[in-house]
């Protein structure tokens, strides 16, 4: 009992002791890097629509995202993306490029364990939950719309 009290007090004390980082510089960096990645995406999208005017907006977005994913995956492979990430934080995690980075980085890292047990198995160690949550929640939304559809 006394131990629990002491531990709680100690954890409270540590919380106060942890140096507070200045939020503004890192928020600013993630703002402009993130914004720039989105502008790049818009640029790619506009160029695609210029070259293939018959494409639907939906397909154009898909092409844009694939190109962004390619760029991020490449930058991860050559060891540049994590430098951007160190600087920009959320700015390079939240865009789709961050998703690409979270898939490529473990597969490059665990290459030494072989193709099957290294690359393929470890590929989703970080991005796995994103796909699981995304798919499960979209199924839930689909299910709700299906139920609603039964009554209309």
């Amino acid at each position: 009992m006394e131990d629990i009290k002491r531990n709680e007090a100690y954890n409270r004390y540590i919380k106060e002791k942890i140096p507070k980082t200045k939020a503004w510089p890192s928020l600013f960096n993630s703002f402009w890097v993130g914004g720039l990645i989105c502008v790049l995406g818009q640029g790619i999208n506009d160029v695609i629509l210029l070259i293939f005017p018959y494409l639907s907006q939906q397909s154009a977005w898909a092409c844009t995202l694939i190109i962004l994913i390619f760029i991020a995956s490449f930058l991860t492979g050559v060891g540049v993306y994590d430098q951007i990430g160190k600087f920009a934080g959320g700015g390079s995690i939240v865009p789709i490029t961050g998703f690409s980075n979270s898939i490529t980085s473990p597969s490059v890292e665990f290459k030494s364990e072989g193709i099957i047990y290294g690359i393929c198995v470890k590929m989703f160690t970080i991005a796995g939950p994103v796909i699981v949550f995304g798919v499960v929640s979209s199924m839930l939304v689909g299910f709700i719309y299906w139920i609603i559809g039964l009554f209309i």
């Binding site: 991860t76 060891g79 993306y81 994590d82 490529t104 980085s105 970080i126």
Partner: peptide
């Protein structure tokens, strides 16, 4: 985490 993951290290 993997070395190439673009995350920030916490201040501690």
């Amino acid at each position: 985490f993997p070395l190439e993951l673009g995350n920030q290290r916490p201040p501690t």
